[in-house]
Design a protein around this nucleic acid. Structure first.
Lengths: 206, 206
DNA sequence: GTCTATAAGAAGATAGAC
DNA sequence: GTCTATCTTCTTATAGAC
């Protein structure tokens, strides 16, 4: 990784730990293994480093969204995949989503940084809500909608059903972000949640 | 309100808007209507102001918790209240909880401040999780447990049912904290959520 | 591109008069 | 308890040699 990229990487780590204001340019330079003045050859200010992180993340999000909507467009293929899904598959799906959000390094650091800085700038608040609320609800709404179309799940309100599926995952995610030692119990709760979700919305009579 | 208390109040407002590091002692003093040095007659440091806010909130939380557990202890009285509860009552209950959390001035500012500062200090993270996750789940679990005991709601897992009731409220709360213009649509979603919750867990055959 | 040295300014905190 | 003046330290950023 070149220096310019390493600066972003180390800065993101520090911003996620302490927040923008409590990270000094010298801290970032230290982690990269250079002196603070050298850093100004790559970025013209501390704010420019922050902006570059946001910019890069926007790019990643866009790629992710495109990847998802490419699958989403080919709904018949997706429908085929989800035709024979059962409760265990649903648990696996939810757990994998949860673990990805929690353990993907870039994702986790970025989410923490946004959590800290969200009230600092309306744009950051919008990025947070889009990335961790609206987009997941939209994407999972599409998936769960397929399961309803297949008759695997039953409801007359897919968007509320999706909220019922995702909001416990979101809540547990924020818990584990604050306290990683609660991961194990959260995974247990997550599984119970999805099994009960399946009982509530599943085709079989409860 | 005396000066010492007004300092806490204005400091909390500013900390909730900008975070601890971006609020200057002079800003706080300005809002109170005094000069920064005068502020040091009341608190020996900026950190001491922050600590006093946390301390005061701990006191409020404790009082709140005691008030709740006094009611909770007299479960027979509570059970009587919730004996004839119907869907509209449940919607009202959830909406009132939501609006209290969102509009109670002290509560809202303190939650925003904690949101910003939660990764700064493990103790703050614990306060957040206790106050906005564990305690609500525990309290609402008790209430919903009463409704199950009355046969108004049906489940073999009250704690997951409580998670299903509360986590959408929590998610919508964080959305409105970031973007108050989404209050109206969130209230609509909240009502839909509770009505669907009642359909899923209600005594009547779905 | 990296360094040392340093400017420029911000922000927390104190001294001492009133 | 409040003020003005000031100290001290910290932090961003630049200058200029290598």
């Amino acid at each position: 990784m070149d220096t310019k990229q390493r600066i972003l990487d180390e800065a993101l780590t520090l911003f996620a730990q302490k927040g923008y204001a409590d990270v000094y340019v010298a801290d970032i330079a230290d982690k990269v293994g250079i002196k603070a003045p050298s850093l100004y050859k790559h970025y013209r200010s501390k704010q420019a480093i922050f902006d570059a992180i946001i910019e890069e993340m926007n790019g990643r999000f866009l790629m992710q969204a495109q990847a998802l909507s490419i699958n989403g467009a080919d709904a018949t293929a997706d429908a085929e995949i989800y035709k024979h899904i059962d409760e265990d598959h649903l648990v696996k799906l939810g757990t994998e989503l949860f673990m990805y959000y929690l353990n993907d390094d870039y994702t986790r650091r970025f989410r923490k940084m946004l959590t800290i800085e969200q009230f600092h700038d309306k744009d950051l608040a919008d990025v947070y809500t889009k990335q961790y609320i609206d987009d997941p609800l939209s994407y999972q709404g599409m998936l769960l909608g397929l399961l309803v179309a297949q008759g695997i799940l039953v409801t007359d309100n897919v968007s509320i059903m999706t909220l019922h599926f995702y909001s416990p995952i979101y809540l547990l995610l924020t818990v584990c972000d604050r306290d990683p030692s609660r991961l194990e119990s959260s995974l247990k709760t997550l599984e119970e949640h999805i099994r009960q979700f399946n009982k509530l919305y599943g085709r079989t009579i409860k």
